[in-house]
Structures are given as C-alpha cells and as structure tokens.
C-alpha cells in the first residue's frame, strides 16, 4: 500500500513531462480532454477505471497478484476510502488527483458504490472529496 508517497501526492501519468514518460513516444499533441467533459459516474468509470477493474467491476487475477474487485468489496463501505484511493492511488494504481475534478471523483465513487452488486445507502459529494484531496 502506498503510504507516504500518497500523502506527498504523486503526479498522475498525464501531467508527467515527456522525459519522465521515456518510451511513451506520445507527442504533447496526444488526445486528452475527452474526459474533462464527462460528468456521469458510469461514463467516467468506463473511461478511466474499467481498463483495470473491468467492465463488470470484478478486477483480475495476475501472477500471484490481483487487480482488486470492486464488486462486493467491503472496503467501499465508507465512501472516503475509495475517494482517497482514486485521488492518491495504491501500489501500481496511478494517482488520479490531477486527472479528475472533485465532482468527477464523487460521481465515480457514487457509481461504483451503487453498481456491481453494491448498494451503498449514502453518497459522497464534491466538497467532501475536496477535503480528502
């Protein structure tokens, strides 16, 4: 689990300078910004999260290590925990704090906590996300 690094705030992949991306070969003209227009939690999930956590939220099993399932995950009980992880990452998961606004983090956390078999009764709002950030 990322502890001190998370608190110090790693920058996310998108804000990294080209030199820090090494073999990325991405010219600065690469497409960004489609995400910026998204408000719907489900759309944000599809755009950012399901590349690892999968369409059905069930994650994946790798070489003795896993991408955690969000379906039926007890750690989602308190909304501030997933909000913190979305902002600051964990292990190989990138920090998304510079990629997502407070509103977007709230939307995607609320989406995850009410889909994939999750039925959270409460919602997190952007102001609370802002405090966690």
């Amino acid at each position: 689990m990322r502890k001190s690094a998370a608190l110090l705030g790693l920058v996310c992949a998108l804000s990294a300078a080209p030199s820090a991306r090494a073999d990325s070969a991405t010219s600065a003209g690469a497409a960004t910004g489609a995400l910026a227009t998204l408000r719907d939690g489900g759309q944000i999930y599809a755009h950012v999260c399901q590349g690892c956590h999968m369409r059905d939220g069930r994650g994946g099993l790798g070489a003795g290590a896993a991408i955690p399932a969000l379906a039926g995950n007890g750690k989602l009980e308190d909304a501030s925990y997933p909000a913190y992880i979305v902002l600051h990452g964990e292990g190989g998961m990138p920090d998304l704090d510079t990629m997502l606004t407070d509103k977007q983090v709230a939307a995607v956390v609320n989406y995850v906590r009410t889909h994939f078999g999750n039925h959270a009764p409460d919602q997190i709002d952007a102001a609370t996300v802002h405090d966690i950030r």
């Binding site: 992949a13 991405t26 497409a31 960004t32 950012v48 590349g51």
Partner: peptide, 11 residues
Amino acid sequence: MFGESAMYLAG
C-alpha cells in the same frame, strides 16, 4: 498511447 487515452482504450 499513455495516460488518459490508454486508460480509455484499456477499458
């Protein structure tokens, strides 16, 4: 691609 575009296509 890296970053946002890569996450999008990975999904």
